[in-house]
């Protein structure tokens, strides 16, 4: 490698350190016995993890977050399958406009989605609950699910479906027996990405959940109390581990999907 290459490599390493700086601190403070989040460290302790485990509000927030994330990711992926199939397989009038509109939440500040939805819900008199959060999360997860699913659907070989028709399968039969298994890795990636987005989403959950806590809103409420911070650090450590595992599973399925349709193993999550 030449000189500029080595310079870039050094830069890349420093940049990765910048990216990982907060995440490296997380376990350090989570296992530190001191109650103040500052250096020097006090000593090793698993107390914060025990406190986290026995915290009932936190459990409730976790249960709520899981309910929301599972519902929203399933709904977003189902709706996403329709959109991805329509946009990759069919030509229809107004396609660009309709698809652009469905993808809009990707580029719209979340506060605007949350506020406008809140104003309407309050105006109509709908009680704020987990259901209203699920509705909002489905909306913002859908574009990401569509982006992942479109890649899976567009790399399908159309002649495989036609072969199924020729062999006497109905439209639905061909979709279920040929198309669906081939795009299954894409569906799993879409589910995982939607799940992760919903689990970490704060703004919509903060404004639309009423009095129900979710993990991010619980974390936000605790950040004001210095005494609560070590437990939040422990929680953060666990969440990081879970995200890494989920991402690794998603990446595995994405690659398997790529291999199945003969794609290259390079490329990222997008």
């Amino acid at each position: 490698m030449n000189r500029s290459g080595r310079g870039l490599q050094a830069y890349a390493v420093i940049y990765l350190l910048f990216l990982y700086a907060p995440i490296i601190l997380l376990p350090i403070f989570a296992f530190n016995s001191g109650t103040i989040i500052a250096f020097p460290l006090q000593g090793f302790s698993t107390e914060w993890f025990e406190q986290m485990w026995s915290n009932t509000t936190l459990r409730r927030a976790l249960a709520n977050s899981l309910t929301i994330a599972v519902s929203a990711s399933v709904l977003a992926t189902c709706l996403g399958i329709f959109a991805a199939r329509a946009s990759t397989r069919f030509a229809f009038p107004g396609k660009g406009g309709i698809m652009g509109f469905i993808m809009l939440p990707m580029v719209l500040p979340e506060i605007i989605v949350a506020m406008s939805l809140l104003v309407v819900l309050l105006g109509v008199g709908v009680q704020l609950s987990l259901l209203t959060v699920i509705a909002g999360h489905t909306l913002i997860c859908m574009p990401y699910a569509i982006a992942v699913l479109s890649t899976a659907f567009s790399s399908l070989d159309r002649s495989l479906e036609e072969a199924a028709y020729d062999l006497g399968e109905s439209r639905w039969g061909a979709f279920r027996l040929v198309t669906l298994p081939l795009v299954m890795p894409g569906i799993i990636s879409a589910l995982l990405i939607s799940f992760t987005i919903s689990l970490d989403e704060f703004i919509i959950a903060f404004f639309l959940a009423g009095n129900e806590p979710t993990l991010p809103t619980y974390i936000f409420s605790q950040l004001r109390f210095p005494r609560a911070i070590p437990v939040i650090m422990a929680l953060g450590t666990v969440l990081v581990l879970i995200s890494i595992v989920l991402l690794a599973i998603g990446e595995y399925f994405r690659r398997r999907g790529n291999a199945r349709i003969g794609g290259s193993p390079t490329g990222g999550l997008l």
Partner: peptide
Amino acid sequence: AMWLFLITIPFWTSYLIRVFL
């Protein structure tokens, strides 16, 4: 792919906690 994976991991950890850190 591994480099992209390394770059995206921090992005998937709790946004609130990252900001606080």
